[in-house]
Design a protein around this nucleic acid. Structure first.
Length: 423
RNA sequence: GGAGAGAUGACCGAGUGGCCGAAGGUGCAUGAUUGGAAAUCAUGUGUACGGGCAACCGUACCGAGGGUUCGAAUCCCUCUCUCUCCGCCA
């Protein structure tokens, strides 16, 4: 959410952000609602003041004057009762529009519409030249007995799967490896709730735009989170954080649930796009200073790269263009891991700065040393998401016989197993 | 799921219809005192929104929402959350 005062004073900047992010909300409609809201508020507050004045005079007034004052007060109350629902209606409209206004991308973010406009920042590692025909992860999983997709499809539907045997152990291993990297780098581990109230999703910017991506539990008015970013940021909702506590760096691990509403028919094979996965996520709160936030952003990126380095997976880092970054993000890097089966780099990590967008929505405030209140900045990045990460892991480390040699760093997490072999 | 108790400012806690944005205490800040500190004393100490160039003014907020009333922290209703006991349970 942006400060309404900022929107009033920088309407053109906001308009450009909406256009560049390929969104459709109407700023002029918002500004009109804002004007109407303030006019109605002034009128209502004037009436309330009259009411308060009269109520204060009545007990002091002479007995014979009271009935007249009470009658006047009744009239004022009627006026208030007429204005209140009108204001409530205007505010509903106003708030809904305000929640759809995106944050303004940083100047370095390239303007563009789709993936093709993302800018490559660097490539790390070299895709292996195979001297045999490499298998894709679906074939490898079959050969190694890592996944059951047939069974779950019957009782859980499409995009479901069950990790089995070494596949299940592999997920535990890579997530634990990522956790250890983050803990060694000073992040505080959190295992958060994954069923949350609507306010957490509104607060983190996933609602109302993007509502169709979330699974809901209507009976209890709860939603399943698509990332632990949601509960991790919400951990501090309504809090006033102390400047001395900045930055706060969390590492969360959780199952993540996504409906993949707009992706029907896309990536239906294998483990690339699934409804449920496990993710180790990093979330940072820092002081609202662009230089500090930038520094934290690159630290988060470096953490993710450290995980990929341990897994010996080649990757490239992309700076996402305006059309590819979310409503609240002011800057996003994607890390794309090399997937031989696709013969392409594909997204495995997403590193974002959101400015005070989430803090405003979640009512997370920061008390500065001089006593002033502001909103902290929030950032987040994937550390590892499984099973998607298993795709490059298996495909890059496969051998001609269908076996997979595990990267050294992973071996201790697999209880000394160095190689997965076909049954 | 059943029975009961509760929710007030940074914290503790008083307040059962107007004099309550809210006593008192703690904490915190500033000043006095001191060689310095402690102790003591004095003063101050919420947030949001709106109006105003500003000083400042107004409105709202005592878990949330609704109702009664000229007037609600105080009365009524609904809900949420916390705690205790019972049941169930990984």
């Amino acid at each position: 959410m942006l400060d309404i005062a900022f929107i009033r004073q920088n309407t053109d900047v906001v308009r450009a952000a909406i256009k560049n992010k390929r969104l459709t909300v109407d700023v002029d409609e918002l500004l009109a609602a804002d004007r109407e809201r303030r006019e109605t508020l002034v009128a209502l507050e004037g009436k309330r003041r009259e009411k308060n004045d009269l109520s204060a005079r009545i007990p002091k007034a002479a007995k014979e004057e009271r009935p007249a004052l009470v009658e006047t007060a009744k009239g004022v109350r009627a006026a208030i009762e007429e204005l209140e629902p009108r204001l409530a209606e205007i505010e509903r409209r106003y708030t809904d529009l305000l929640l759809r206004i995106p944050s303004v991308p940083r100047p370095e973010v390239p303007i563009g519409g789709g993936e093709e406009d993302n800018v490559e920042v660097r490539k790390v590692g070299t895709p292996r030249a195979f001297d045999f025909e490499p298998r894709d992860h679906v074939a490898l999983c079959g050969l190694l007995g890592l996944v059951d997709q047939e069974g779950p499809r019957k009782y859980a539907g499409g995009r479901s799967y069950a990790l089995k045997g070494m596949g299940a152990l592999l997920e535990l291993a890579v997530t634990r490896l990522a956790v250890d990297v983050l803990v060694a780098r000073g992040l505080t581990m959190v295992i958060p709730p994954v069923m949350v109230k609507e306010r957490a999703l509104v607060g983190t910017g996933f609602f109302p735009t993007g509502r169709e991506e979330a699974y809901s539990i209507p009976e209890d008015q709860l939603f399943l989170v698509g990332t632990s970013e949601v509960p991790l940021v919400s951990l501090h909702c309504d809090d006033i954080l102390d400047a001395g506590s900045m930055p706060i760096r969390y590492a969360g691990i959780s199952p993540c649930f996504r409906r993949e509403a707009g992706a029907a028919g896309k990536d239906t094979k294998g483990l690339y796009r699934v409804h449920q996965f496990t993710k180790v996520e990093q979330v940072v709160f820092c002081v609202p200073d662009e230089a500090v936030a930038e520094d934290e952003h690159y630290k988060l990126l470096a953490n993710a790269e450290a995980v990929l380095a341990k897994l010996e997976i080649p990757y490239r880092v992309m700076l996402a263009c305006t059309g590819e970054i979310g409503i609240g993000q002011t800057r996003k890097h994607e890390v794309e891991s090399w997937m031989p089966g696709r013969e392409a780099y594909s997204e495995t990590h997403s590193c974002s700065t959101l400015g005070d967008f989430q803090a405003r929505r979640s009512n997370i405030r920061l008390r500065l040393a001089d006593g002033a209140l502001t909103f902290p900045y929030t950032l987040n990045n994937t550390a590892i998401a499984s099973p998607r990460i298993l795709i490059p892991l298996l495909e890059n480390h496969q051998n001609a016989d269908g076996s997979v040699t595990l990267p050294k760093a992973l071996v201790p997490y697999m209880n000394g197993i160095e190689r997965l072999r076909p049954a």
